[in-house]
Design a protein around this nucleic acid. Structure first.
Lengths: 248, 248
DNA sequence: CGAAAAATTGAACCATATCAACTTTTGTGG
DNA sequence: CCACAAAAGTTGATATGGTTCAATTTTTCG
């Protein structure tokens, strides 16, 4: 884990919500006193699965997770990646039965928040309801963009687009160091997210590297020219619905 | 327009919400007195487009619409189809700037509802907030299933899956006659929704017909064997989050 | 009835898949 | 800190589901 990640669960959650919604200091205080139960998880473990009826929401404090669904033939579609500050199953507040699997793709520090506590929080601070609702709506917007990405763009553009998204979402929670960030996604996971094969994902990454759009070392990605990769990925951050200051 | 569609906007909205949420009669009354402004629209007209900041939500009363996004190269991905009772831009309640286009794919009767009226309604009837929130969550769930569908299934299965979804969603609002329903989607639109070409969509439909999974006449689709087409489309209705009685 | 939209057909082509090694990196236990 | 097994990444050759292009036919609708 990088040093920058030594934050409380509540701080990460606030930081994330702040990137899409203006919280008052009173609301921040309420969030700070929200009871959150910490758990640590190894890589590639299920957090919740299809059919579960969770009584808690799961906040990513450190590490990364993905949401995925399986076809009958066992093919996996990754629907979303989640970064620190995200609450991948916030939907379970109002949809009793889960229709997705959520798994860790790195070691994770997770914070579990009781539905009842969240409901109570929203009652006491009525502006938090639209804040959380908005959070679920932003994630829905990301699904839509992924549909466009996977449906209409070349494999090359898809991967470039995904890298751009990762960059901005990490930046929003302070996890980007200038032009470099950690993207601990294997090529197999990248493939399952973009609807291509791992072999082709490998070839696309090589092309992106040799075209100078990214340089990689371990799981660190550096983007030398933000404008260029945006162009290659047809990336327009509107769909992330970030506040102005989080986009630059 | 078919005779079964002679309902007020409020009735269609209630019918739809009832399929995913149990409303009290008091809440139904409140919905019935919601002010809704009716407009009629021709086929293939934009209702709202990317960048708009709507002050109203749009309820489909009669007809069908689609949500779509365009790639830089002008390719269109259809993200969703909407049927009577749906509110395709309900998200605009909490996301100021629209990231999608919404267009009619048939002649439509639309009902426009002021954001302020919806907010007021939710304040006066606090259980309606989770009801509407849930509605947006169900649509997000459909996006996820479409990602799986378009990413991991064959063209044949994708189309079968989409037909299954249409059937259940129309059934939920009473627009299915036994095994037959209206699906006024051109092959070009079907192609843009499933991420294939119109030519291939045509061939897939022919295959589905010759395999006896569907029979068509005009825009009427008949499904002789629900079990068979579900199998072909790997269709499991869980993701629609319908109440029990709406699934059978 | 006539024009435009939608559906259909055939044939060549290609972006990506598939398969089957092989190499490099990573993480773990001794 | 080393060894070594498992995971991840890479390569080359071959295959294919779906695309593309360019007609032609059928349907829809004013």
């Amino acid at each position: 884990m990088t040093p920058s990640e030594s934050h409380t669960p509540q701080e990460m959650m606030i930081r994330k919500l702040e990137s899409i919604f203006a919280l008052t200091s009173e609301e921040e205080q309420a969030l700070i006193s929200l009871p959150i139960q910490i758990k640590f998880l190894e890589t590639n473990r299920n957090i919740v699965t299809v059919g579960d009826q969770p009584s808690h929401c799961c906040l990513i404090v450190e590490g990364f997770t993905c949401v995925h669904k399986l076809s009958v033939e066992g093919k996996r579609q990754i629907i979303a990646f989640h970064v620190p500050g995200d609450i991948p199953d916030l939907q379970s507040l109002h949809l009793q039965v889960l229709d997705i699997n959520i798994s860790s793709i790195t070691r994770c520090k997770l914070g579990f928040i009781k539905h009842t506590d969240l409901h109570q929080l929203c009652e006491q601070h009525p502006r938090l309801t639209p804040a959380l609702w908005r959070e679920t709506l932003v994630h829905a917007s990301i699904f839509r963009e992924w549909l466009l990405n996977n449906g209409q763009r070349s494999a090359y553009s898809r991967v470039a687009h995904l890298i751009c998204e990762f960059m901005l979402r990490l930046k929003a929670v302070g996890l980007v160091d200038d032009t470099t960030f950690t993207m601990p996604v294997t090529q197999a996971e990248l493939a399952d997210a973009t609807g291509i094969t791992p072999v082709h994902a490998n070839r696309v990454l090589q092309a992106l590297r040799s075209d100078g759009l990214i340089s990689t070392s371990r799981q660190q990605i550096t983007i030398p020219d933000w404008h260029e990769i945006q162009l290659a990925g047809e990336f327009d951050p509107l769909y992330l619905h970030l506040k102005e200051e989080a986009i630059t």
